[in-house]
Amino acid sequence: MEDKTLRKEKNPLKNIIILVIVAFFASLTLWGNAYFINLLTLLFLYLSLAQMWNLLAGYSGLVSLGQQIFVGLGGYCLAIMTEKYHQGLALSLVVAVAVCVAFAFVISFPIFKMRGVYFTIGTWIVAEALMIFFANWSFANYNIGYNIRMGYTFSPNIIYLMAYIIGIGSVALVFFLLRTKTGLALMSMRDNESAAEVRGVKLYGTKLRIFLLTAGYTGLTGAVLYLNMVYLTPDSAFTINWTVSMVFMVIIGGMGTIEGGIIGAVVYVIIQQYLYNFPGISMIILGAAAIAIILFLPKGIMGTLHSRYGWELFSVRRGLQNKGASVTSLKDILMK
């Protein structure tokens, strides 16, 4: 019953829900306890990572296992700018974004020549190479890494607000992007690349723009993550674990959906914190949960909810499984 009313009065109710949620989290700094704030800081940052990976893999078909490149570069830019050059946070974040976008642009030439699984492995290799490079780079303090002392000076509430803006911003960014022409192009590419190209979508240019956008945003997220973690080494900055967590969040939440990333981030961060109480078997539990979800809910939690009850919060979604969807979905949008 509720689903129907939801669908009927689509816009007002949804907007109110979204507004209430946004306001609730913003007000937390006034009354939330320190642990809860820290948990939510992580949650919003992981949410941003998930949204960016989802945009890249779920919509653009660029299944990258190398997004830790940008988490690490973002963190390192922050560390080097603040620890070595004693610059302020704003400039450090700008540099982090700029370096990530520039680096993504440079590596796009070789790795965009690869497709599918070759692209996936190519991105991973770049990340591994960077890890070794940073471990041997005297400029970046070798493998010793940095304590990011700037993080000591910020109150957890301020870092939470930054994370909050980045997290909500990532959702808004993906949402509004998907409503633009680029968004149409992305969804048509996701559904059928050849058909999209025939209808005039510039594949290379669109993919490149998305790759650069996600690189910059992931780098920004990485920098704030490390502002909160206050310690980084090449091993932790460029570890594949970052991308594994992104994949985990997106797959359990639902690939190719905005809500999927949100659900995935909530589930992942809470499970992870809870499992710290069970050293030794936490990985087994996490792995079993992932296997169970992939086996029984192959479209993820949100994908299943949507196909079963037709419920969705952000209405940009077009069926992933729908054959020939590119044509119908484009039509749908044009007719609106």
Partner: peptide, 22 residues
């Protein structure tokens, strides 16, 4: 109160924060 860092510095940060804050 024991916390397992899983021999991973990222996990070490998060469990240490949990010990302090929670």
């Amino acid at each position: 109160v024991y916390a397992d860092t899983q021999s991973d510095s990222t996990v070490a940060t998060q469990v240490a924060q949990k010990l302090v804050l929670q």
